[in-house]
Amino acid sequence: MWKYLKGALVGAVSLVAAGAAWAENPNIGVIVPTLDAQFWNSYADFMKKGADELGVNLVVLNADNKPDQMIKGLEDLVAQGVDGIIYTPYWATATPGLTLAKQADIPVILTDSYADFDPQDALFPNYLAFVGPSDRDAGKQMGEALFAKLEPAEDGKKYIAVVNGTAGTSVAIDRRAGLQDALDAHPDVVVVGEVDGNFVRDTSQTVFESLWQGNPNVQGVWAANGGTATGVIAAITSAGKKPGEDVIVVGMDLNPENVDAVENGELLFDIGGHWLQGGFALVMMYDHLKGHEVPADKANVKLGLLPLTQDRVAKFRADFPGGVPVYDFKAHSRAYNPEAQTAVFEMKYSD
């Protein structure tokens, strides 16, 4: 039975002591940045489904948006002697985590936020692979959708605010770079201010309220992820304005509440599906532990993401009931299916 304890062990199946049993059912540790975000709950739930199908003892830890908790989680997993570790290296924890795991001869797959070096680097041969989204492309698509919707002010300019994610992470940096790509192509768009929402709702709501108070001419908001968009929408609503009419908002992640917001017109544009990355990493780690190495040319995975606008919501719900694509973990595992080509599946509409 899964247990949820904030800042501590979130999901665990009892570890097996016998060596033969360990080989049959590997113990894989996972650390997520925060379970205060719907995205990371979806990520963990998909991995749990995969663990059940593949026969993996999964240990899920919550860093609770704290750098020291991420390091402590890594230390705990190494001390437990897990067979593999999958984690998201926010707060510059790639090198410390890989070092800890290397010293214990534990293979690692990074997700969502990448390191400054490629997988299977000579310094860290235990770094098997990276799986994450094409953040820069997503950030650009978000910007372009927002710019196209806005009407110029009397001076011919379009005024937007930016609510970024967790500062210093490759995720936040690349999404903002994508927005800059869009800005470079649209000199009529003016960024009135930027704040860091730390990828969570409450912080995003608070910092946007402050930014908006000093810049009442904001017409649209580029929000770095789903929780950020939800916080911005809450701020607009609390001010007695209508998101989607008085202020246009775009976001990312395809969280259920954001899909609802696109459907009801509060959120103009959303893009995502990359919470699947955890499940893909699980298949890759499982296969590695079963003797199927990750090919070097398939070790750095950047996922294309699924865009969503109001006119595609019905199609989205038909193609992905509950927001979840059909995915057979065993069919994508070379340990179970020697004909499997890749663990990766990108969400696409049926037509």
Rank of each mutant, 00 (worst) to 15 (best):
M1L: 13
L5S: 13
A8R: 05
A18I: 14
W22D: 10
A23G: 07
P26M: 02
I28Y: 00
I28L: 00
V30M: 08
V32P: 01
F39I: 11
N41E: 12
A44D: 13
D45Y: 12
F46Q: 12
K49R: 14
K49M: 12
A51W: 06
L54G: 05
N57S: 11
D68H: 02
K72A: 14
G73V: 07
V78W: 05
Q80W: 11
Y87H: 10
W91E: 01
T93L: 09
T99Y: 00
A101F: 00
K102I: 03
K102F: 00
Y114L: 08
P133H: 05
R136M: 10
D137M: 08
G143H: 11
L146E: 06
E151P: 00
G156I: 13
K158M: 15
T166K: 09
A167W: 07
D174N: 12
G178R: 09
L183Q: 08
A185P: 10
P187I: 07
V190Y: 13
V192H: 09
D196W: 01
R201H: 12
T206N: 09
W212T: 11
G220C: 02
V221Y: 00
A224Y: 04
N225G: 11
I233T: 03
I233Y: 03
E245L: 01
L254A: 10
E263A: 15
L267A: 06
G273M: 11
Q277D: 07
Q277L: 07
G279V: 09
M285F: 04
E293V: 14
A296E: 13
D297A: 08
N300R: 09
F316C: 03
G322D: 04
E339A: 15
A340T: 09
K348W: 12
